[in-house]
Design a protein around this nucleic acid. Structure first.
Length: 262
DNA sequence: ATGCCTTTCCCAGAAAGA
């Protein structure tokens, strides 16, 4: 099974690129983030024409997550659905969507940006990540076949940014944010990309549009595919498709692909 | 210290992204 995740930075602006990419990359399941669409504007017919069933959780001009699947799509869950958890610090945002695809529980997540370290947005990002961990613990078991994929807006280690010094004091690389990712790993999730490319630096999923950052290889790896142990054993191959960041009207993120042994 | 670039709102320029 081929699983992908891609922050498309507006599905309205990106639909031709997404259709083209689905046709050649042929993922079985694809998680999308930042669709920036209301549900009634989601182009389900375009994806159905390519053989995909879809679920979308949108809110309008911001956020928005989707799951596309050509191996079945059942038991769709919208947002954090669990009892007895603290209030979602981003209540009302469309940032979490779950579905069962080909026997695997798939969660598409769009972690809040955080803006400036120390800002209210940053504190709420940390609270949101803690809530994600608590929700996983309430809703799932580490022994489940579970994928949590999306834009985490955190670079797990210094290897995941082009120049750690360039990000000193910035969001996405701070210790509390990285600790929040490690808490997900402590619960039972593994960064599937690093199973395939342990320790390899210079592999990124996001490059700022400004200043020729993509062509200068100034990027960060913030889009992750996290898997539980039963799926980690099945990881066979992974790739960031940099071709999708090239050319006309690209997203500022590239898609990440992970292949699981069937 | 700020803009760089792109997208949204919708038609002017601010907000947001990371």
């Amino acid at each position: 099974m081929r699983i992908a995740t891609w922050n498309v930075n507006s599905l309205r602006a990106r639909l031709p690129r997404v259709e083209e990419w689905l046709a050649y990359a042929a993922p079985d399941v694809c998680c999308l983030q930042e669709t920036k669409l209301a549900d009634d504007r989601f182009p389900a017919l375009a994806f159905e024409a390519l053989g995909y069933s879809c679920a979308h959780h949108g809110q309008g001009q911001w956020n928005g997550v989707a799951i596309l699947s050509r191996v079945g799509l059942d038991d769709v869950g919208v947002g954090f659905e669990a009892e007895g958890l603290p209030v979602d610090p981003y209540e009302g945002d469309a940032r979490v969507l779950a579905a069962t695809c080909g026997g695997v529980r798939v969660v598409s997540v769009y972690v809040p940006n955080g803006r400036e370290v120390g800002s209210d947005f940053y504190e709420r990002k940390l609270a949101w990540l803690a809530r994600l961990r608590d929700w996983l613990d309430a809703a799932y078991r580490p022994g489940d076949e579970l994928v949590v994929a999306g834009d985490f807006n955190v670079a797990p280690t210094d290897r995941d940014v082009w120049d750690p010094a360039a990000y000193a004091g910035a969001t996405h690389v701070t210790e509390p944010e990285r600790a929040a990712l490690r808490a997900l790993e402590a619960w039972g999730l593994t960064d599937a990309f690093r199973i395939v490319y342990p320790e390899v630096p210079g592999l990124f999923t996001y490059w700022d549009y400004r200043g020729g950052d993509f062509h200068q290889h100034r990027g960060m790896r913030i889009d992750l595919v996290l898997v539980t142990e039963p799926l980690a054993r099945r990881v066979r191959w992974a790739l960031v498709d940099r071709n999708a960041r090239k050319g006309k009207q690209p997203s500022d993120h590239a898609p990440v692909i992970v292949d699981l042994d069937d």
